[in-house]
Computed example of a mutant assay.
Amino acid sequence: MGIQGRSLAVVEATRFRGHDPEYHGYVQLLVGAVIAEAESQGWTVSRLAADDGVDALLTRTETADAIVVMGGEDIAPRFYGGGTGYEGESRHLETADAAQLALVRRAVERETPLLGICRGLQILNVAFGGSLVQHLGEETAHRNHGVPIHEIMASHPVEVEADSRTAELLGSTRVDVQSAHHQAVDAVGSGLRVTGRAADGHVEALEHETAPVIAVQWHPEDPGAPVGQLAALLGHLSIAARIPQATAA
Rank of each mutant, 00 (worst) to 15 (best):
G2V: 13
G5C: 01
R6S: 15
L8A: 00
V10K: 03
T14Y: 15
G25Q: 12
G25T: 09
V27R: 15
Q28G: 15
L29F: 14
G32P: 05
I35F: 07
I35R: 13
E39S: 03
Q41I: 08
G42H: 07
G42P: 04
A49M: 02
A50C: 04
E62V: 14
E62N: 11
A66R: 00
A66K: 01
M70G: 01
G71E: 03
G71M: 01
E73F: 15
P77F: 00
P77V: 05
E89Q: 09
L93Q: 09
L93M: 10
A96R: 03
D97L: 07
A98W: 03
Q100K: 12
R105Q: 08
A107Q: 08
P113Q: 06
Q122H: 11
Q122W: 00
G130L: 02
Q134C: 07
Q134A: 10
H135P: 07
N144V: 09
I149D: 04
H150D: 13
I152P: 10
S155T: 11
E159T: 14
T166Q: 06
L169K: 04
L170H: 02
S172L: 10
D176P: 07
D176A: 12
D176K: 13
Q178D: 06
Q178V: 08
S179F: 04
A180W: 13
H182R: 03
L192I: 04
T195Y: 03
A198C: 11
D200P: 10
V203N: 00
A205K: 01
V216W: 02
W218L: 13
H219G: 06
G224T: 07
P226A: 08
Q229L: 01
L234Y: 02
A248P: 10
A249E: 12
